[in-house]
């Protein structure tokens, strides 16, 4: 796996941003699961725990013209792309103040004002949708880049090849990030494919492809920033396989017993949030006290969001009927 020597020390500002985002996602998932256990969140909830480094690093390399497409495990992408926790919690609690008015839920969560095409209940859908966003930007004369977050599981869906190939023949500003967490529910990657180094699939169709440690948010940032630069220079698309591991089962009700202890430990020892914190302290020279203050602020923000969501209005059936009039 590529891990390159750094020429310049990253700025404290960047390191703080990476840690803040990673911690915000971590806190959202940890506390969100508690809400689920209390029966306040219904339906599916696929935690991003353990994978925070990927969304965090990738979105930090984008600016407001750029787009993302997300997956069923989409809370982290949504946060990293700039959504407020309040609208997200309200969405999970089915409230009308939610980003999708309580119509979408966890699996369809999105702040679409942030150019987020949304989480998706269909494994594999984010790749063609993301290529479509890249195409729209090309047609509209924008140099915006689209990042599609995708998964190891989705690489065995035919649209992976079909749409990545389209992005390639049309030189689109498209970055496909394959979050390889090595499982599709309980099916291991090795059971699902012979060639478990997924970046090779991009190379096979002439797409510049990389394989990196997805638990290193700084490395993800640098790799995506480089890819964004290349895309804007007309050298896209680019595929980045980011290797990672879930900290828990597939969704909140999956104990994940099939995940080997030693492997889990290996990845927990390389926890993306801890690493972002260490970077901020060691490279960014932030004091442990200041780091704590950031954490406390994020925790308070979450609690306030839950209170606001709980106090928010319920959806209206009449409004819903009007909404779908003529559907």
């Amino acid at each position: 796996m590529a891990s390159k020597k750094r020429e310049n020390t990253p700025s404290k500002e960047l390191l703080e941003k990476l840690f803040t985002t990673a911690y915000r996602i971590r806190n959202f998932e940890t506390e969100g699961i508690k809400l689920y256990r209390r029966g306040l969140v219904r339906g599916y909830f696929h935690p991003y725990l353990g994978q925070e480094g990927i969304a965090t690093g990738a979105c930090a390399a984008l600016d407001e013209r750029d787009y993302i497409a997300s997956t069923h495990r989409g809370h982290g992408h949504c946060i990293a792309q700039g959504a407020e926790v309040e609208g997200m919690i309200a969405e999970l609690l089915q409230k009308e103040t939610g980003y999708c008015k309580g119509y979408g839920g966890s699996m369809h969560i999105a702040d679409i004002t942030k150019n987020n095409l949304g989480a998706n209940g269909i494994v594999g859908a984010s790749t063609p949708l993301g290529v479509g966003a890249a195409m729209a930007n090309q047609v509209n004369g924008s140099d915006a880049v689209t990042v599609a977050f995708s998964t190891d599981g989705a690489t065995n869906n035919g649209t992976f090849l079909e749409s990545l190939n389209l992005a390639a023949i049309w030189d689109l500003n498209f970055i496909l990030i394959v979050e390889n967490n090595q499982y599709a529910v309980s099916t291991t990657l090795a059971e699902a494919t012979r060639e478990t180094e997924l970046y090779k699939r991009g190379e096979a169709i002439g797409v510049e492809s990389h394989r990196i440690d997805g638990n290193d948010s700084l490395l993800v940032y640098e790799t995506v920033a480089d890819a964004v630069k290349k895309c804007r220079a007309g050298l896209g698309p680019i595929l980045i396989e980011a290797v990672t591991f879930r900290h828990s089962g597939h969704h909140v009700n999956d104990p994940g017993k099939y995940m080997p202890e030693d492997k889990l430990k290996y990845y927990k020892d390389r926890d993306p949030v801890d690493r972002a914190r260490d970077n901020l302290i060691n490279m960014g020279k932030m004091s442990a006290k200041d780091v704590k203050a950031i954490e406390a602020k994020i925790e308070a923000e979450f609690e306030a969001a839950v209170k606001a969501a709980e106090a928010a209005g319920e959806v209206s059936i009449e409004e819903f009927r009007e909404f779908v009039e003529g559907y």
Binding site: R42, G43, Q94, C100, G102, Y103, G104, G105, M107, H108, E314, V315, I317, F320, R321, V324, Y327
Partner: peptide, 15 residues
């Protein structure tokens, strides 16, 4: 069923 995709919200799902 109503001519609608099914919303996440349970009240609307039921409706």
């Amino acid at each position: 069923g109503m001519n609608t995709p099914i919303p996440f919200n349970l009240t609307l799902e039921e409706a």
